[in-house]
Design a protein around this nucleic acid. Structure first.
Lengths: 210, 210
DNA sequence: GTCTATACGCGGATAGAC
DNA sequence: GTCTATCCGCGTATAGAC
């Protein structure tokens, strides 16, 4: 009932949101490569040209999807941050949450990192990305020697890199095909983050002369 | 002269290799998304149908490119391993080398990770990937508590994840646009690897109950 | 705001000649 | 082993009607 109402209202309702949802569906089924505006339109039940009333082109639709992904990510990060008390615990939990996000919302992850979106062309996306990481950044700052922006950036990049890599490996199948691979990869990311934080003094040492 | 010879010999010579080279060129110019067998054929100076004598389809050509990328990677890893004496130094150097590889051979990196190749469908690729990592794995084994395969795998995955993530961030522009970003990212990967190795005892602890 | 119809272009892949 | 020619299908984007 509600469903029918929602569907019927697409035509005079929230077509942009419906297209975003359809995009995630399609990416989940066939990957980002095969996604097309035309297919998203068909899936939504509107004509092929309708999307262009709301999105200038294919890229703008993907950018809208990426923003939705950032918001979901922020939601998850904030939940993890609230559940831990020490900065190290918080950051390890965020790392694990990122890996879970990649697996549980794979289409979102793909759009976020595989669509080749230029953030300078989509300021709203750049903003959403910053907001997702803001709270974690504050936790990282507490674990730096002086709390400077530079040190904080260094640490955040190291942790981001570690998490990103674990997520990528998981989706590439490096942790196996079982459903439990997600738990495994998330735990590994958590442990690796903890290990990296324990040895973090090496991050702030001067790099070797070159 | 030699060039002309080479070109002239494409038609009765090593067209597969020429197509692989053309593919890397194209990916470097326009990204993996826009690559097409047709364009690779044009670039190589042969007809659109010629590639299909050597590769069953587009994916097989990409798999051949991925194998070439693995070989280049192995070459770089082996060079780094020979230049350091401690396992920790070797692994840190390998991590940095991976980041450099991503930047300096970006098309290879893209094909390796963005083509969505299923290694079970391309056994030769799976083998090449294993060979690239074999020597680094031996170094990692020396840094585990008991030297078991399980512990070694855990450590290799953590380091692989860290390196992969740093490479991805670099190509995404997270380390800036300057040419020096490559050096920066490589150093960060090296330092993060060293930090992770220093704190590695946390990797081998039992994960929390869930 | 959505539809129908259309212009335009490209890629994958095959058949058959040489 | 390579070419020419061709079939087939798909997607992007726009124009103009409703």
């Amino acid at each position: 009932m509600a469903k029918t109402q929602t569907r019927a209202s697409y035509h005079h309702g929230d077509l942009p949101a419906a297209l975003v949802a359809a995009t995630f569906e399609l990416v989940g089924e066939s990957g980002l490569q095969d996604f097309s505006v035309a297919e998203a339109a068909r899936r939504t039940g509107v004509s092929i040209s309708a999307p262009y009333r709301h999105f200038a082109d294919r890229e703008e639709l993907l950018a809208a999807c990426a923003i939705a992904a950032c918001q979901e990510l922020k939601r998850r990060f904030d939940a993890e941050l609230a559940g831990e008390r020490t900065p190290a615990g918080q950051l390890s939990a965020v790392s694990a949450a990122y890996v879970r996000f990649a697996a549980e919302q794979r289409p979102m992850f793909e759009v976020l990192h595989g669509a080749g979106l230029d953030k300078t062309k989509h300021p709203a996306l750049a903003l959403a990305a910053i907001e997702a990481l803001a709270a974690a950044e504050a936790a990282a700052r507490k674990l730096t020697p002086t709390g400077s922006d530079e040190e904080t950036g260094t640490l955040v990049q190291a942790l981001t890199g570690l998490s990103q890599g674990h997520a990528t490996l998981l989706l590439d199948g490096a942790f196996g095909d079982q459903p439990s691979a997600v738990d495994l990869a998330a735990d590994r990311a958590r442990a690796a983050t903890a290990a990296l934080l324990r040895g973090r003094s090496l991050l702030f040492a001067e790099p070797k002369a070159r």
